[in-house]
Design a protein around this nucleic acid. Structure first.
Length: 607
RNA sequence: GCCGGUGUAGCUCAGUGGUAGAGCACUCGAUUCGUAAUCGAGCGGUCGUGAGUUCAAAUCUCAUCACCGGCUCCA
């Protein structure tokens, strides 16, 4: 990397930025700051009603019900008011009050949301006061005095709409996000890291590295893949296809659309219609009769048709049908973003049809595959979530019995594998529970990639069967699974994980050849042809620029291996190799470079 | 879909009512060069789109589209 810092820059103690959950001090600071902010807001906007204002990992927020939405301009005034409050050195005092007393006081203030919160609180009810000016229901903990806050370590970041109790059908509140630290240096470091994260943003890198694009004319959420981006995608596809071949998966191909009737049988039409593109019908009569075609939001109903094509024997099972199937989901406009949330994406989908006896083993071998895929991709930071249904919701198909069976099958397998998981109630698919693998992007937002799902319901709805050993007809169980989740989301996460610096085997361009002057271009082209014939992705820089500029350009494109060619190299039939990771390696014979490159690529290693 | 913000050249951005700018990229010319930017010239924008206000709109107003940060939802 170019070193823009003065070389005299001394190394300083790195500033640590703990998460709120890791620091009692930060918990206090952020609780108290959020109260100070709420007090400031109510001073400036007396009609604003308070609701909740918790700390979050990097700061805090507070939700208000305000007659007019806050704008970013309001934040400045609020911050100013907060500083005044801090400077008044108000003591923060805790008070325990009986429930009816709390109720009386809240009614006196006229804060309906607080009343709702109170109803859910366990005794004892605690109130925190800022001097005698303002109080809020709160479990604490808090600082002792507003003067313990450092105004230079506090910042208000953004405003957003948020629904009361996270429920779309309830009132929309105005949320203000802020952050607060022990020292101004920590705040500065926090902001610096946020900017750094922006540099890893896959949307920015995707454009800079020329991997994918969006076109207003094509439509939102519909990525277009450039030649380089397509190399990435297909390298990932090929990698997984090979892994799956080793494990007995059978590739299939199915169309992008199907009759609506198919989705009625599967339940998508009833339970997933909101997420589907509108039906295509020949005319209004057909539309009314719901006789039309729909883009597929999932691949399962199609694979099921292939299963059903013949009478299956227990000897055929497990049957593992796999497809990189592109699906279309009509996501709400505000949910779209980069490659992590799109409207058309490719699922590395497989559906395993198994006997009940095979379920546990198959499930575990799927998880094994998923973990080995993550390992090959050097993805280490993920969480496993058991995504079960919400018992109070009616958005699921199938019997309670089928659900309990599926959920306990997943939990048992996860336990047997020693997976460190957490429970996500209400996160299940409409047809069955899942084991999901969750990753973070550069901005610490969470995204689900890999998933395994156990499904007793679709086999029921499609009346799937196999002939058992005793000649009886039995119902198979389905496992839906996708290690990548979707190619689009995976590539988005990988770009940010690697900061665009792809490992050699994945890099869209693996080698760039740089001729010191144009007279060495013919030699460069000969070497390039040799590399290409070995399957190495190589480019020759024909720009005629100076070497320094060509290296700079290759570095900016994050090409892992550069090879410089001048008189010495031509003379010795060699290459002067420079890698992004290690810099100049000196002169190496062409034959050796070829051998080392092919070996490194084959082993997912580095040059 | 909802709340807030942003749309000026391929990219990054300046320009707040009076004749559209810079750097990089691109093209051409000169230079033939040894490990992160050679020099010069040129090309390039109905200022997201559509209405409106005004003698005059990139700039003010409204609508609309897209993107960004959240909420909801999700691979």
């Amino acid at each position: 990397m170019p070193n823009d810092l003065p070389s005299s820059a001394v190394s300083v103690e790195p500033i640590s930025l703990p998460k709120t959950s890791e620091s009692e001090t930060l918990k206090k600071i952020r609780h108290t700051t959020s109260h100070v902010m709420a007090m400031a807001v109510q001073k400036l906007f007396p009609k604003a009603q308070v609701t909740i204002g918790p700390w979050i990992e990097n700061g805090f927020y507070y939700d208000f019900d305000a007659p007019d939405p806050f704008t970013e301009k309001d934040l400045k005034a609020i911050k100013k008011e907060m500083i005044k409050i801090i400077n008044r050195k108000l003591p923060v005092t805790r008070e325990e009050v009986p429930r009816d007393e709390a109720e009386r006081r809240i009614k006196e203030l006229g804060e309906p949301y607080k009343l709702e919160i109170l109803a859910d609180l366990q005794d004892p009810i605690t109130i925190y006061h800022l001097g005698d000016q303002w109080w809020d229901l709160c479990a604490g903990p808090h600082l002792d005095n507003t003067a313990d806050l450092n105004p230079s370590a506090i910042d208000l970041e953004s405003v957003a709409g948020a629904y009361w109790r996270g429920d779309e059908t309830k009132a929309q509140l105005q949320r203000i996000y802020g952050t607060a630290w022990e020292t101004p240096e920590q705040l500065a470091e926090y902001k610096r890291r946020k900017e750094e994260a922006l540099r890893r943003d896959h949307r920015k890198l995707g454009r800079e590295l020329g991997l994918f694009l969006f076109s207003d004319v094509v439509g939102p959420g519909l990525p277009l893949w450039t030649p380089k981006g397509t190399v990435l995608r297909s390298t990932l596809e090929d990698f997984l296809k090979q892994e799956q071949l080793k494990r007995g998966y059978l590739p299939v191909v199915t169309p992008h659309i199907a009759r609506v009737d198919l989705f009625k049988v599967s339940g998508h039409w009833q339970n997933y219609k909101e997420d589907m593109f509108p039906m295509m019908a020949e005319d209004d009569a057909a539309r009314l009769a719901e006789q039309g075609f729909a883009m597929k939001p999932m691949n399962c109903p199609f694979h099921i048709q292939i299963y059903k094509n013949e009478l299956r024997s227990y000897r055929d099972l497990p049957m593992r049908l796999s497809e990189f199937g592109t699906v279309y989901r009509y996501e709400q406009s505000g949910e779209l973003g980069g490659l992590t949330r799109v409207r058309g994406f490719t699922v590395d989908d497989s559906h395993l049809f198994v006997t009940p006896d095979q379920l546990a083993d198959e499930f575990m071998s799927v998880v094994d595959l998923i973990l080995s895929v993550f390992n090959s991709l050097q993805l280490k930071n993920f969480k496993a979530r058991l995504s079960f249904r919400d018992p109070n919701s009616d958005k699921y198909i199938g019997s309670d019995e089928a659900w309990s069976k599926a959920e306990s099958a997943i939990q048992k397998a996860a336990d047997a594998l020693g997976l460190n998981y957490f429970l996500g109630v209400g996160e299940a698919a409409f047809y069955g529970p899942k084991l999901d693998f969750i990753f973070q992007d550069a901005l610490e937002r969470e995204w689900q990639l890999g998933t395994v799902q156990v499904d007793y319901n679709l086999p029921e709805r499609f009346e799937l069967e196999y002939v058992a050993e005793d000649g009886s007809r039995q119902r198979p169980v389905m496992i839906h699974r996708a290690p990548f989740g979707s190619l689009e989301r995976l590539v988005g996460i990988l770009i940010e994980e690697y900061a665009g610096d792809f490992p050699l085997w994945l890099a869209p361009v693996q080698v760039r050849l740089l001729a010191v002057t144009e007279e060495f271009l013919p030699y460069a082209k000969t070497v390039a042809a040799q590399m290409r014939s070995l399957g190495i992705r190589v480019e020759v820089d024909t720009s005629g620029e100076r070497l320094g500029k060509m290296i700079r350009n290759a570095e900016k494109q994050k090409i892992p291996v550069m090879a410089v060619i001048g008189a010495k190299e031509v003379e010795a039939n060699g290459l002067s190799v420079r890698t992004r990771a290690s810099g100049e390696l000196g002169a190496i014979a062409v034959a050796d470079v070829l051998e080392r490159l092919t070996a490194a690529i084959a082993q997912y290693g580095t040059f």
